[in-house]
Design a protein around this nucleic acid. Structure first.
Lengths: 263, 263
DNA sequence: CGCCATGTTGATTTCTATCAAATTGAGTGG
DNA sequence: CCACTCAATTTGATAGAAATCAACATGGCG
């Protein structure tokens, strides 16, 4: 097993291209931090990521292709249109998948969380951007070598297909939300979805739901404006459905959220 | 090669459950028509479907698993929640992928056209309904046997993954449309998308774009109401962007549509 | 302590939905 | 072949939900 322990400062740009006022232009200059690869068998997401398809003895060969990389918050991991040199397994933190139109209108497709794979399609370039919301760490592979590895491991390909199918299913849920739900329903479904998503990362569901993304991110995810998001969340608080807490919300009436999400 | 030529009348129900007035309750009683399987090498979609992954000598073994099935227009191929006994390759016609909420709100996820595969995820049950818009013919496989066949053919699995990835990409385009485009932009993008989709089926793009689905289907696809769809299309006609023709529209200013779709 | 980003609240506008009615058009039977 | 029927579509008037425009509040951080 070859471990390269050089601490390489990966040059990249903070998020400065956003045309909306007040977005971007942080003082960070260090975006990504390439650190030593860790042993798969100590990996916290090995059981929930695509790697779960592999047998312990196969991890060794995958490790040889992997390197760990860390991103500060609000940094671009991937830019829409870029060649996809790398694919990523998110090991910690949250990133948003986003596309922006020429006039600045933005749509967030989803939030990548630990265990999620970026590059499921193995396409030669990216059709969306990925930006860290919190600090993010990833296990990174070159697309070429990961693809070649996959060709030798049909069970890994099968797992990738399962992940892509699951994403497709979530995408359809989201189309339903965007096309047919009211602002209140969108917020309620979002809160419930985040609760379930955290449960899968943490192993158990809680009524405290961390929402590390900004109101703008939530708005762009739900096809709303920041004002409507703020108003709706505060309205739900006034109705005693939830309480706004630092860094997220606390659900008071789980049934209300569950019913809206499943109807 | 075993060909079963019995003409079996498959019992199924017309679309009668739709809560909206005037939808459903056709006089058809014959839904699906199980007809003799055809030879893959004469199949019109062999080059654009998942079957394109297979070598000519592999078609023979796939044929043994396949049977052709025909549906009249406005018939259910698949009901949301059903066990997925079968998976389908659409060989002709158009079907809509749709989900309906308890209160009747509907979202159309997309339109399946010749070459499209229904059941990419190979999940044991369906998370959406599929209903024929025009008469539809499919090449049908039992999910179990298709899945087993796929396990023997990694290149077929890879093709399935490519198709799922492509669907995911289209799903993201559609999230952008639903979340951030205006009614006029939605209609224009839809028209352009249908034009491109026909081009892939027919091999060449035309300015005449057949739209066999109803205004209601278009509305439910775009997250609009039927009235807004009608008004917007007629507004585009008044602006000399297109002409409404029987069964579809004719594009007059391709650039206008292309620009809106790609911005 | 004050600055700037982020979030909240209020007033008003706008786009699309809703409600309502008229028109078209495809299919049916006389 | 043509009148009739019913569904589908179009058009018009009005309502309503969310966007927009505009302050104002909060809060983290130097």
């Amino acid at each position: 097993m070859s471990f390269f322990c050089l601490f390489f400062i990966y040059q990249a740009h903070p998020l400065t291209d956003d045309p909306r006022p007040g977005v971007g232009s942080t003082t960070h200059t260090v975006c990504a931090h390439h650190i030593a690869g860790e042993d798969c068998k100590f990996c916290s997401i090995r059981l929930i990521s695509v790697c779960s398809a592999l047998e312990p003895d196969e991890w060794a060969s995958l490790e040889r292709l992997a390197s760990d990389i860390a991103f500060a918050e609000k940094m671009p991991l991937i830019r829409e249109g870029d060649d996809s040199i790398w694919v990523y397994n998110v090991t910690s933190g949250i990133a948003r998948l986003v596309r922006t139109l020429a006039d600045g209108r933005r749509q967030v497709f989803g939030f990548a969380m630990p265990g999620d794979f970026l590059g499921l399609s193995l396409n030669p370039n990216w059709s969306f951007s990925v930006e860290s919301v919190t600090p993010v760490t990833c296990c990174r592979f070159s697309r070429q070598s990961f693809s070649a590895f996959m060709d030798q491991k049909p069970h890994l390909l099968k797992k990738m297909h399962e992940f892509a199918s699951h994403e497709l299913s979530l995408a359809r849920d989201h189309m339903m939300l965007l096309g047919r739900l009211s602002a209140e329903e969108k917020i309620a479904a979002f809160v419930w979805r985040m609760r379930q998503r955290w449960a899968r990362v943490e192993g158990h569901a809680k009524l405290n739901v961390p929402l590390p993304m900004s109101r703008q991110d939530i708005a762009d995810y739900l096809g709303l404006t920041i004002e409507t998001v703020s108003r709706t969340i505060n309205h739900l608080q006034r109705d005693r459905r939830l309480i706004i807490v630092p860094g997220g919300i606390r659900i008071l009436t789980p049934n209300f959220f569950e019913d809206i999400s499943s109807e």
